[in-house]
Design a protein around this nucleic acid. Structure first.
Lengths: 253, 253
DNA sequence: TCAAGTACATTGTCTAGACGATCTGAAGGA
DNA sequence: TCCTTCAGATCGTCTAGACAATGTACTTGA
């Protein structure tokens, strides 16, 4: 026989997936569920805890448990490799959001840090070498939606406006291009994992919310990596989209 | 003061991220940790439970808790839009795996199902319309690594080999092309979420493992969707990679 | 020697109950 | 009327202990 806590989890998972419990709707209290299934409160908690870590429900003390709602922003990595409009006053993300009638905002801070192994490999610097990190958190209507940490080798950007913690309307790619490091090619890598406590704090994530981590490494024409941006996208707030066309004539690698 | 269970979680999270506890290494028993922190076993369990749902450790009864190891396969959606080699005897995935000296295998089953709303929208059929689903689970060395469920509108493929539950070396894209539905363009969408119990079962997932869900919708030259493949990629086993080049002359949409 | 059985360590499930933390809404007072 | 206070509901944390389930390793018997 299946353990009681799993029967409870399965029962409410079904109610949610069948639509009997709609997003935003409230579940019975732990006490009530306990009576119904004939178990003590702790067992109910274990069962509902499963659904919390699955991201299906959230607990709001002292109101109860509620079915979670997911609203996703479209995220297009390919947009990054289009030229910016000449007279842009904000970046693509902010433009899109304000076109939708919502209020974009951003926090920026700059630091010099030692490259972690994953960054050192992508930027082709020594592990522990100093890199400039430009940390941004994007908000919509005051709610954090994603993290964008751009990393640059220190010697490339040390005298440019990239190291000043202010907004750069034309974008850091353009600044790099003006410095003679025009990007021609980029490699995108996407990892899926659970967030770190730091990411949970910065993004205000609830339990059961995985993240996609998008590494965007930009290369110049002579194949030198000049920037690596780490985007942390909460799973409940994003949908990553890109397009492909068939390439008939290309040789197989 | 922070609750005891979170102090325990933080302590072992630090030991793992600092490398003091290496992947595969064993943690002390619940009993030992309880003595060290001066709490009962249940509290230790709550703390270690946090790390389990974060995907950092796994419990193996009756051996104890172990630091989890992540080994990721490279997944390239863009490879899908390259022509297959003429004399291919296996698909791209199997070829790659066997080139690496590992043993690929696959289970296939075919069914007629009613389109769920998300599929109906992508294939532009009525919700509830019948579609052919070609369900595959891929294995490496006998371990499941991902799910690929390809969906086709029934009237397009009803007399073809797509509805037979056998291996098609040239690939279903080629079968569709031979039927006069050659794909020219595809839209990729990636979602991140926790797996369903069904996915956990089919993929043998441990707790704390999120999945990336990759929808690959293929369109013909006259912009009709003819296939939608849903790939479920466990986060601990994949790394999604694609490449971009800058497009100078394209108009902004 | 080899197979079957058994003791043991460890995690898994569950009970019963206590007190804390947080928000709502009602009662009471200015 | 409006603000303050406070009781109550609900989830959060923790204790103490019981028995089950599951591999491992040792013991026992043929």
């Amino acid at each position: 026989m299946e353990p009681a806590y799993r029967r409870i989890a399965a029962a409410y998972r079904d109610k949610i997936s069948s639509g009997e419990l709609a997003p935003g709707e409230r579940l019975p209290t732990e006490h009530e569920i306990g009576e119904q299934f004939g178990v003590v409160r702790q067992t109910v908690r274990t069962g509902l805890g499963v659904l919390v870590t699955e991201g299906l429900i959230v607990a709001r003390r002292p109101h109860g448990y509620f079915v979670r709602e997911w609203e996703r922003l479209i995220y297009r990595p390919q947009e990054k490799s289009r030229p910016m409009p000449a007279r842009a006053t904000m970046d693509r993300f902010s433009q899109q959001i304000s076109d939708e009638g919502r209020v974009p905002s951003m926090s920026i801070d700059i630091a010099l840090v030692q490259a972690t192994p994953d960054l050192a490999e992508r930027l082709r610097v020594e592990p522990g070498a100093t890199v400039v990190i430009r940390r941004r958190v994007r908000f919509i209507n005051g709610e954090p939606v994603n993290i964008n940490d751009s990393h640059f080798p220190l010697d490339l950007v040390k005298d440019s406006e990239i190291v000043s913690p202010s907004y750069i309307p034309r974008g850091t790619d353009q600044v790099l291009a003006d410095l003679g490091h025009k990007q021609e090619r980029a490699v995108d890598e996407i990892f899926v994992r659970m967030p770190t406590p730091d990411e949970i704090r910065r993004l205000g994530l609830g339990p059961g919310t995985p993240v996609a981590v998008h590494y965007d490494t930009g290369y110049t024409a002579d194949d030198r990596p000049v920037a690596c941006t780490v985007n942390v996208l909460p799973g409940d707030r994003h949908r990553i989209v890109f397009e492909r066309r068939w390439r008939e004539n290309e040789p197989l690698s």
